[in-house]
Measured scan of single mutants.
Amino acid sequence: MGTYKLILNGKTLKGETTTEAVDAATAEKVFKQYANDNGVDGEWTYDDATKTFTVTE
């Protein structure tokens, strides 16, 4: 398990959240659902060194 971070750079929603997941693929699924639930759809990037996903609208 590891802690993964999501940085939201949406047009109307900005912020950060974290999740505990077994791997990056699992964290990505959780974060994409979170972003979708909050109406954020954009370009995704992932930094393996910091376990950080970023979505920018």
Rank of each mutant, 00 (worst) to 15 (best):
D48A: 14
A49M: 13
K11R: 13
G42V: 02
A49D: 10
K14C: 09
K11Q: 11
K32E: 04
D48H: 10
W44C: 02
K14Y: 10
N36L: 15
L8H: 03
T52W: 02
Y46P: 00
G2L: 14
V30D: 05
T3G: 05
A35Q: 02
Q33F: 05
L8A: 04
T50E: 06
G15E: 08
K5R: 15
L8W: 12
V55T: 03
G39T: 04
F31Q: 00
N9D: 09
T26V: 07
T45W: 09
V40E: 03
D48F: 10
A25H: 10
Y34P: 00
W44S: 01
T18I: 09
G39L: 08
L6E: 00
T17A: 12
W44T: 01
T12E: 09
D47S: 06
T50V: 06
Y46F: 07
L13I: 15
F53G: 00
A35P: 01
V40I: 14
E20G: 05
L13K: 13
E20S: 12
L6G: 01
D41K: 13
V22S: 12
A49K: 12
Y46T: 01
E16N: 06
N36W: 15
T56V: 07
E20R: 08
A25V: 09
L13D: 05
F31G: 00
A27E: 00
G42R: 01
K14G: 05
T56E: 06
E28Y: 15
D47Y: 05
E43G: 05
F53R: 00
G2S: 15
Y34Q: 03
D23Q: 03
G39S: 07
T50G: 04
Y4W: 06
D23F: 03
G39Q: 08
Y34G: 01
T56N: 11
Y34F: 11
Y34L: 06
W44G: 00
T56M: 07
V55R: 01
D47W: 04
Y46G: 00
A25G: 09
K32D: 02
E20P: 06
K5H: 12
Y34K: 03
D41V: 14
K11I: 14
A25F: 09
T12S: 11
D23N: 09
T56W: 10
V40W: 12
T12N: 14
T26N: 08
W44E: 00
V40A: 05
G15K: 13
T19F: 13
K29A: 12
D47T: 05
T56S: 09
T50K: 06
N36F: 14
A35C: 09
T12I: 11
A24N: 05
T3M: 12
L13A: 08
L6I: 03
M1V: 11
F53H: 02
K32P: 00
Y34I: 07
T3P: 05
E57D: 08
T12V: 12
A21F: 04
A21W: 02
K51G: 06
T12R: 08
Y34R: 03
F53Y: 05
G15F: 14
G39I: 04
D41I: 15
F31P: 00
T56I: 08
L6W: 02
K32R: 14
V40P: 02
E28N: 05
G42A: 03
K5F: 14
G39A: 06
T50H: 06
T3H: 09
T50F: 05
A25N: 09
Y4F: 08
K5L: 07
K5N: 05
K29S: 10
E20Q: 14
K11D: 07
L8M: 13
D23S: 07
I7W: 04
G10Y: 07
T54D: 03
T18N: 07
E43I: 14
K32Y: 06
Y34W: 15
G15V: 14
L6H: 01
D23I: 02
K29I: 11
T17G: 04
E28F: 15
G42H: 02
A35F: 03
N38L: 15
A21E: 04
G10Q: 04
Y46W: 04
T54V: 08
T19I: 14
N38H: 14
T3N: 07
N9Y: 15
A24G: 04
K14T: 11
E28S: 07
E16P: 03
T18R: 08
A27G: 02
E20F: 14
A21Y: 03
T26Y: 08
D41Y: 13
I7E: 04
A24H: 09
A25T: 09
K29Y: 10
D47M: 05
D47H: 07
G39M: 07
Y34E: 02
M1Y: 13
L13F: 15
K51Q: 10
T18E: 09
A49V: 12
A27T: 01
N36T: 14
T50N: 08
Q33R: 13
T17W: 15
T54Y: 13
L8S: 03
K29W: 10
G2E: 15
F31N: 00
D37W: 08
K51A: 06
Y46S: 01
F31L: 05
V40T: 04
T56P: 01
T26H: 13
G2N: 15
L8R: 02
L8T: 05
K5A: 05
N9T: 08
E28C: 14
N36P: 02
E20T: 12
G42F: 03
V55W: 04
G15N: 10
K32S: 04
K11N: 13
A27F: 00
T56C: 06
A35L: 09
T45S: 13
D47F: 04
F53V: 01
V30E: 07
Y4P: 00
D37V: 10
D41L: 14
L6A: 03
G10F: 13
T54C: 06
Y4H: 02
E28G: 08
A25Q: 12
L13G: 08
V55F: 05
G39F: 07
K11F: 11
T18Q: 11
T52K: 03
E57S: 08
A27Y: 00
D48E: 14
V40C: 05
D47A: 04
W44R: 00
G2R: 15
V30R: 10
T26G: 10
E16Y: 14
G15H: 11
V55D: 01
K11S: 12
G39W: 06
